Simulated assay, not measured.
Amino acid sequence: MWKKLGLVFCPEGTSEWMSSHATVPTPYHLHGDLWRIYFSTRDSSQRNQVGYVEVEIAETVKVCSVSQQPVIPFGKLGYFDCDGVYATSLVKHRGLLYFYYAGWNAGRDGIFYSAIGLAISEDNGLSFRKYTNAPVLGRDRVDKWAVMAPFVQKLAEDNWLMLYTSGIELYHDKDGQLKSLYDVKSAYSQDGLEWFKTGETAIGLEEKDTNIARACFGVEDGKFKAFYPYVSKALGNYRIGYAESADGLHYTRKDEHNLASSLCVGPTLSWDSDAVTYPHVFEHKGKFFMLYNGNGFGKTGFGMAVWQE
């Protein structure tokens, strides 16, 4: 089961660009016990940029340093990422770091539009340059509203797989509240730069939920295993799900599996009392750890848990 290690980091509003939120934590191993955890933060105007903290994972989890400026800035006015950047997947390739992100534009009445971009680092992740000012994966006949929350694995030098969140529908409920539906679809590439959509759903919605966000997946013993957040209709908030696949393209959901269900919300008034969401599972010194957000889509920061048999 998952044993919680507590809240790791939450912005304290000491800088304008990192005013609140540490959403979708994404790990990168530096050396020894030192890891850099990237996240999407918000400025005072609720626009997103990417920052990081460096942490030591040993007997305890200790924050060692915090970035002083964003590593991926906004796009130019009118570009697909001019209102915010959510970086959600990091891949090491030929001495470079590829950071896949969702850029978004604000629309009217709470609507937003998003597409997937790529930023590349040549200095081990201290800074990133955008591969192109255009999306590497955008809206089209497959994804008509939104393309976001990419997670990428390089399965072989010429075989890259992406799972991404696909916006299915926007609608107003009976009370006039804006609601959304989205699931997870797949794309493939030979070089990590040019991407092609399969057009098929990888992880689909069920009767119990309305949304599935960033799916973090890996391969173990020839089986693809994915962790993801889903919005429960009954609870109206995020919980963590788990699915398995033989080919990486079509997953069977097993949300009641202990790998997901054992990470429960915290006690009343705690930082994760309402939601557990945006999981990222990684291995460190033979143990599996999970980074995750709690309440308010990362407003209360991110925490960590360790898997114990």
Score class of each variant (00 low, 15 high):
184 V>F: 11
186 S>P: 10
239 R>V: 11
196 F>E: 06
207 E>I: 02
184 V>A: 13
189 S>C: 12
195 W>C: 13
192 G>H: 10
226 A>W: 00
237 N>I: 05
222 G>R: 07
187 A>G: 12
233 K>P: 09
194 E>H: 15
246 A>I: 14
241 G>L: 03
200 E>V: 00
215 A>H: 01
218 G>F: 14
215 A>S: 12
230 Y>C: 06
215 A>V: 00
193 L>C: 12
231 V>D: 04
214 R>T: 14
203 I>Q: 05
199 G>P: 05
203 I>L: 11
179 K>T: 04
196 F>C: 07
228 Y>M: 10
213 A>S: 14
190 Q>H: 14
198 T>P: 07
238 Y>W: 13
211 N>V: 06
238 Y>T: 06
213 A>Q: 08
192 G>E: 04
245 S>E: 04
209 D>Y: 04
212 I>C: 07
223 K>W: 00
218 G>C: 13
236 G>A: 13
207 E>H: 03
233 K>I: 12
242 Y>D: 06
240 I>W: 06
231 V>N: 07
204 G>W: 03
240 I>F: 04
224 F>D: 07
233 K>A: 12
192 G>N: 09
194 E>S: 14
212 I>R: 08
245 S>Y: 08
219 V>Y: 06
234 A>P: 03
222 G>N: 02
183 D>I: 02
201 T>K: 05
213 A>L: 11
220 E>W: 02
180 S>L: 09
212 I>F: 06
222 G>W: 00
191 D>M: 06
205 L>C: 01
186 S>L: 06
195 W>P: 10
228 Y>C: 09
232 S>M: 09
231 V>W: 06
233 K>N: 15
184 V>C: 15
190 Q>F: 08
226 A>L: 03
234 A>M: 09
219 V>A: 08
232 S>G: 11
200 E>M: 01
243 A>M: 04
192 G>W: 12
237 N>T: 15
183 D>N: 15
228 Y>R: 03
206 E>M: 09
218 G>Q: 09
223 K>N: 12
228 Y>P: 08
203 I>C: 04
245 S>W: 05
224 F>H: 10
200 E>G: 05
189 S>V: 09
188 Y>P: 05
203 I>T: 02
207 E>A: 12
205 L>R: 07
216 C>P: 01
191 D>Y: 10
213 A>R: 13
245 S>H: 08
233 K>Y: 08
234 A>Y: 04
195 W>G: 14
225 K>W: 00
213 A>Y: 14
215 A>N: 01
240 I>C: 02
204 G>F: 01
214 R>I: 07
220 E>F: 11
238 Y>C: 12
204 G>K: 08
191 D>C: 10
183 D>W: 02
239 R>M: 08
202 A>T: 05
198 T>F: 07
246 A>Q: 14
183 D>M: 05
197 K>W: 00
181 L>E: 07
193 L>G: 05
230 Y>F: 15
195 W>R: 01
221 D>N: 15
217 F>P: 08
180 S>E: 05
212 I>S: 09
213 A>E: 06
198 T>V: 00
210 T>F: 02
191 D>W: 00
191 D>P: 08
200 E>T: 06
